[in-house]
Amino acid sequence: SRTDTETIVHLFEERGIECLRALRGMFALAIWDGRARELWLARDRLGKKPLYYFSDRSRLVFGSEIKCLLAYPGVPRALNASALPLYLTYGYVPAPDTLFEGIRMLHPGCRLRVANGGVEEREYWSPPILPVGATLASPPTEPEAISALLDHLREAVRLRLISDVPLGAFLSGGLDSSAIVALMAEAASGPVKTFAIGFSSEPSFDETAHARAVAQHLGTEHHEFIVQPDAVDLVPKLAWHFDQPFGDSSAIPTYLVSKLAREHVTVALTGDGSDELFAGYDRFRAARLAQRYQRVPQPLHRALAALARRWPQSTGYADIGRRALR
């Protein structure tokens, strides 16, 4: 056949579990080695694909969703109270914990070996990180770094355009998604299908005008959806899909644009991850401001805090009053 699953099986036959180092992209897999009587579970380097498991003295149950583990007889449905502080701190529960007692999530870049009644987890990849204060022996110039980054982005996008199903992209008109769509348009043989979503109730969250301008510039086959979502009604559905609480309001527009785009494509590229890599979130700038704020004399702290509390606030995304209070 021509399936990616069969490719992994043959690669495992040739290289064993070291085959993980040759895989690129997102995956969560399980391989039973009948000759060695070993079960291997593995997750992609950055953990884009989830993989959960429950183990006790007599069994190991695993799957890509917590709900499928809970459907198995004997897997407890109990709250893991020790994970609550993690959720309240980060807005989600990082691996290996979950909010369910006894159910664990495999770490990104790790593989799990089950053999002879034992379970062993090991890391097969970790991001290269320079020690604090260290520098590269031969650091690239800024033009060299930009050129190398563009080469990597071009290659990554080109590889993800290889698909046997309809493919498109989510386009907000921001820097991240616009860059991805521009590289898709450069590599694709025809117009790229792009999708944007807007909200009629809150103009500050509506990015369709920016997305439309980018789409026109790149000549994409553009689709816009204007919705009036009832966020309260969506919460149970999102909780069912996520399996755990997820404290990020972006889940709502992401779900809606995914649902609407599914009418046209099966796979969509996005600009997700860029803000984490390149410090694009406002919170990073806020952290710098907070450092400078610490230099302000204490008496002024109270005056500024009182002013922030009295400043009028709106529900807009860029509202100065809400941001100052935070």
Rank of each mutant, 00 (worst) to 15 (best):
A287M: 12
P191I: 02
P128Y: 13
V214L: 06
D233T: 13
P166V: 07
Y92H: 14
E263L: 04
K49L: 11
A211H: 01
P299R: 01
Q244D: 06
P85F: 07
G190A: 13
D233P: 00
A78K: 14
S1R: 11
F170C: 03
G174I: 00
P94M: 08
C19L: 12
E155T: 14
R45T: 03
F199A: 09
A71R: 13
Y317S: 05
F62M: 07
A305L: 11
R35D: 14
S82T: 12
A188H: 10
L29Y: 04
V114H: 10
R57F: 09
A185I: 03
Y281P: 10
S163L: 07
A308C: 05
E207C: 01
R322S: 15
F284E: 10
F62S: 01
G219N: 04
S163Y: 03
D282W: 10
I226V: 11
A261M: 07
E6V: 00
E14R: 14
L84Y: 05
D33R: 00
Y72Q: 13
F205M: 12
L23E: 07
V267G: 03
G34P: 01
L106P: 08
R285N: 09
R122Q: 15
S201H: 15
Y281C: 08
L304A: 13
C68K: 12
P253V: 01
G118Q: 15
L86Y: 03
L84H: 03
A187R: 07
A95Q: 02
A81E: 13
G102D: 00
R295V: 00
L150W: 09
Y317K: 15
I17Y: 02
T98W: 04
A179R: 01
T89F: 08
P96H: 03
A305Y: 09
D176I: 00
R212G: 08
A115F: 05
S1C: 10
A303F: 04
H10A: 08
W311H: 11
P73K: 04
